[in-house]
Amino acid sequence: MDGWLADLVAKYNYWIYVVLMMIGFYAMIRKNNLVKKLIGMNIFQTAIILFFISTGAKKGGGIPIVDKEQALAGAVQAADIVNPLPHVLMLTAIVVSVSVTGVALATMLKIYKEYGSIDEDQILERVKSDEP
């Protein structure tokens, strides 16, 4: 039991990422409201951002802005600074997720104009009644 708990605490950031991901998944599958589905999707994407940022973290690591002269002289230890690459990757992933959200919201506006609702059940009813 002790080992299990210690494991959980030591890697709590990864557990939070999994939990967040499952919350997002639940919202995407279960919620009928399209806006809630979209929020679920955003939570899902945020979970992955947390995962990546966690991989770059180091205990006691400083900010990865270093003096050029020192770095060239080999005075900077990689262990002293956090890994900046995952942060950079996640900047791109945030841009992607913002664009996807934008497109999804625009699409949702068109759905609302077409069916007068953003509730999935009501929309499906309208779709069924429209088709012969």
């Binding site: 999707m41 996807v100 999804a104 699409t107």
Partner: peptide, 29 residues
């Protein structure tokens, strides 16, 4: 490619935006 595809599909009439939204959710996953 996916974001442009979502946009192109949503430009259709009738059920197109709804189909595009489902694609957005699945495609993002």
């Amino acid at each position: 490619t996916s974001i442009t595809t979502y946009g192109l599909i949503a430009m259709g009439r009738g059920r197109a935006p709804l189909s595009s939204f489902n694609y957005i959710v699945m495609g993002t996953v």
